[in-house]
Design a binder for these strands. Structure first.
Lengths: 372, 372
DNA sequence: CCGCGTAGCGCAAACGTGTGTGGTGGGGAG
DNA sequence: CTCCCCACCACACACGTTTGCGCTACGCGG
């Protein structure tokens, strides 16, 4: 065996043809240009020599790196691993590979990573980072770089995107709480620079209105980031305000977990004193102290759809811009309970059945906690 | 501005030198070969044109892709995101980028991904996949490909590796349970093809022996994979065997979570009826129903150290093979309690202080559950 | 029989960079 | 003054692949 990996010239020599012919014979696109006989001969030689085309040389020539950049805030956020897996699986099936970068919601870091990836000549970008109106999109558009937005939208430019229907999801959360009898419902809003934060707030307001509930601005706290700490801070802040509340809808599971800590510190019980509902249905969130009720969307599929959209953009150049929404799904768990003094039956909605195809983690049917 | 990105020839032309000279002037290694004056001129021209070296062309020439392959079982396992971040951060600082592949503990998939990455000419590998004696290592060694093992060892070949001291960690878990008064301690072993599974089992046996406790084979169940389901299956199996037990040390947090489900299904309370301790201190594991006691190791640092070792291998060719162990740390939480009938004081060990630098998730000091 | 279209293949030039080799000029030593 | 050495730079080629172009041979219609 050769210590040096077989090159196209070796294959060509073995098949007694010119390297150019070997190239055409091996490329499915151009195989029709060579006779069937020689194509077979070349293929045989390639197989015999264990030939593997050098993607670096190919990239240099074709100006296609078959890599895409994926920018996310932080891989440690349990929301992202399934999404990233969906992305990578889909991309890998098409011969692409993802370079992922964690921006930590830092604009400078984001800029650095973006430039670095552009220097590496990625064929496209999937942006799941939070900031809404930034210059990166303009640059990418100017450079004709395919970009797909994930879980965010952009009004300035029109980019393909795939995201969950956040307004609808927030409405569903509010509706659930309202049906349990809650009227004073608080909201911990996400960062308003993020489209998820803004649209979930809209959905919250809309849902309250449609149930004839007053939206008291005192019952809305604005978090600066999607973290447990921020959730705790906001919840504590809400508890200090006058009026009080019996339920809180958080814009995100992380923020909801923060509520747990804040309620704990205040000596309050969830769900007996305060019902809590989150958003995202992060892995393992169903195993928390009271299992967290939340709004689920198919994480893995979000990734595959984003990959699909990007591949279409890369392949066909510019077609129609597709904006895709995935339907959210209410998941009722033990962190919400009927308002004290109501009949138990008020809370007996059927919990949605877990039916995401690829999330391999155990979703054992968690029993609803009994209200007392 | 040029629609076409500036190339080295453009820079050379702007500085009135030959491209070769420009190349040498810009490369820190070879800068001494050109006069200081021209070096300055070239640098100025490069800056003015916004020149970014084309990494593809450079890779083709230098046979260095500045990419490394990272193979892990499954990104959805919460253990891995912090590790991967450590890896990527360290690699990025050195100008490298990680291509990560999820093997799903499937040998065929692993083989495919490995080949694909080799085809992409990665400069090295970080292998965190579980199977111990495989052919991939032999191939990599034969091809002189730098390889670093993460959380696994190989006796056949000598590869650099970084992992937690699994035996010591398992001993610490057993010691903790023994000090609480438990004598009948069960073990849910990890897959024995994985070095973690084997060494934690050794540590368990060793710990039991050093406390003068009998290691009954009936109290050891072997899981096929590190999953919640397998943990539940094994725990149920243990419960069905004669003799009984009052504490269980799982080889992994996932398996421990499975114990929760199994105990729940059997109508048993943790920690009142059975104490449970895990291994890894996965993110969010401190927020479970009873917060899970476990053995922690610095995840992020595991990643950075692996990256460091790999970079050394890549840079300096072959030096001494370093085998690095990170010290584990016992984390006592509410899932373990003194054996019923003992004095409370027996369980009053000080909980280890959380002091990992980079794990940004909230580790609120979880109060120990009171044994009754 | 000739011309032309076409299938099939070879030739060579790229893509952008790194590097071995050679050549030129100037300065210092003999 | 001559020779040599060294600093500095240009030349050319290589890395492995794709692709536009042109050449040859063959078949077929006029």
């Amino acid at each position: 065996m050769p210590d040096r990996p077989a090159t196209l010239r070796d294959v060509a020599a073995a098949a007694r043809v010119h390297p150019a012919t070997a190239s055409r014979a091996l490329n499915p696109e151009t195989r029709i240009l060579v006779s069937e006989d020689t194509a077979r001969r070349v293929s045989a030689a390639a197989a015999r020599l264990g030939y593997r085309p050098n993607p670096v040389a190919r990239s240099l020539r074709t100006r296609r790196s078959h890599t895409v950049g994926v920018l996310i805030p932080d891989l440690n956020n349990p929301l992202f691993p399934p999404i990233v897996r969906g992305l990578e699986d889909k991309l890998a099936a098409a011969g692409y590979v993802a370079l992922l970068g964690n921006t930590d919601a830092d604009a400078n870091r984001e800029r650095m990573i973006f430039d670095q990836m552009r220097a590496r000549h990625v064929d496209g970008f999937v942006l799941a980072t939070a900031t809404m109106h930034d210059q990166l999109l303009a640059e990418a558009a100017a450079a004709d770089l395919p970009v797909v937005l994930m879980n965010r939208l952009s009004q300035d430019y029109s980019f393909p995107s795939v995201s969950v229907d956040n307004e609808q999801g927030a409405r569903m959360a509010v509706t659930h709480l309202a049906r349990l009898g809650h009227t004073r419902i608080a909201h911990i809003a996400g960062p308003q620079e993020a489209s998820t934060g803004a649209s979930r707030l809209r959905g919250f307001r809309d849902g309250m209105a449609s149930h004839g509930l007053e939206v008291n601005e005192d019952l809305i706290a604005y978090s600066a980031r999607y973290t447990v700490e921020e959730g705790a801070r906001c919840c504590t802040e809400l508890l200090a305000r006058p009026g009080g509340f019996t339920a809180v809808a958080a814009a995100n599971d992380m923020l909801a977990v923060g509520c747990y800590t804040a309620l704990d510190d205040a000596g309050l019980q969830c769900p007996d004193d305060v019902s809590v509902i989150g958003f995202n249905d992060m892995p393992f969130i169903d195993r928390l102290k009271p299992p967290l009720a939340t709004v689920r969307f198919p994480h893995y599929q979000l990734g595959t759809e984003a990959a699909q959209l990007l591949l279409e953009r890369i392949g066909e150049g510019d077609g129609p811009v597709k904006i895709m929404y995935l339907a959210p799904e209410l998941v009722v768990r033990g962190s919400t309970a009927p308002l004290a003094g109501l009949t138990r039956a008020a809370g007996q909605e059927a919990a949605a059945q877990p039916s995401n195809p690829p999330v391999p983690l155990d979703h054992a049917p968690s029993r609803r906690a009994r209200g007392r």
